[in-house]
Design a protein around this nucleic acid. Structure first.
Lengths: 172, 172
DNA sequence: GAAATATCGTTGCTTGTGCAACCTTGCCGC
DNA sequence: GCGGCAAGGTTGCACAAGCAACGATATTTC
């Protein structure tokens, strides 16, 4: 029910709007809402913004990692990783040392507190995820999984070829 | 060249990473990539960032609208709408006047140039959307449609009830 | 082996965005 | 009609985030 009250005549019914049939838009809105909802809890409860918690998760299972590697694994910019990680170090959740084999790299790992934090938070994150997905059928979830894989791969493809292959492909 | 060579041992294979099974994360990454790809074209080619183009689209079919109404229809903050619209006015793509019935409101409409811009851009947007969706089967597309509706509705539900209904539901 | 080149990470800078405060206008109670 | 209260919109402020430039270290080439 988008348009609750009958008092204001405005705000047209769903469907008449081009945006509402535009998948990239809808994808973006839904993704942001879901992310925001979860992020808000983590931020209020643990003072952990998204970048920090992504780093915690990958370090928990794959440490030690360099900044670049974390950036790859979390789909984040290296600047974002760099700054977020610094904050984790300040919080004593992570630590960093120079990579002995390569003076340019840094070697990032979690502290005991960091690992503990992950163990505490992960189940909660999964519970929130489950709450959202509860409205989907088993089949839908499985399909969503495949869809995300395919669309991700498609975006990679675009990134490789760069100049859009459109105009040619469009409506072959 | 991410990990091809055997030289660098790092960057573990997909699947071992919790993030890679976490739907909210994957949803966010995919949505951002798709949006970014499209937004970039519009920005380079027409100097039109996402907020502006969303406003154009809804005004094209539903003008006149107030700032608040646009915010509703485009899932954007009213601040964002206000500023983006001001830019559209500067570009002579939109115009604004006081609402004669309510002195607080403003009445936003498109200029001829604005409508023309929409007509020019919409097909291009749809072509890009189609390019992405081409990797999905008909069934997948239909399912995705339903999924987005359901997840959107779920996020609305959360917004209404606010304090998370988790901890109770979790793993009943 | 020295010079050019590439990689890694951090910092400076610019920009967009959301929140909150604010101003204005309309609305309601009395 | 006047005083409080709500709603619409804009502006100030703080902050996150990406890009470009940089310093430092590795690697390659000749």
């Amino acid at each position: 029910m988008v348009n609750h009250s009958g008092s204001t005549k405005k705000i047209p019914a769903a469907g008449s709007n081009l945006l509402e049939t535009f998948i990239p838009y809808r994808l973006s809105v839904v993704a942001n809402r879901v992310s925001q909802s979860i992020a808000q809890i983590f931020d209020e409860k643990y003072r952990l913004p998204i970048p920090e918690w992504r780093i915690l998760v990958v370090l928990d299972s794959h440490a030690p990692l360099s900044v670049h590697e974390i950036a790859e694994l979390t789909s984040m910019d290296k600047t974002r990783v760099s700054r977020a990680h610094k904050r984790l170090v300040d919080l004593k959740l992570a630590q960093m040392e120079a990579d002995p084999e390569d003076g340019r790299k840094v070697s990032l790992t979690l502290t005991r507190a960091g690992h503990a934090m992950v163990r505490e938070i992960v189940p909660e994150a999964q519970a929130m995820e489950a709450w959202f997905l509860k409205v989907l059928t088993r089949a839908e979830r499985k399909t969503l999984d495949g869809i995300l894989d395919k669309l991700y791969e498609r975006s990679e493809e675009l990134h490789r070829t760069k100049p859009w292959p459109i105009r040619v492909e469009e409506e072959r």
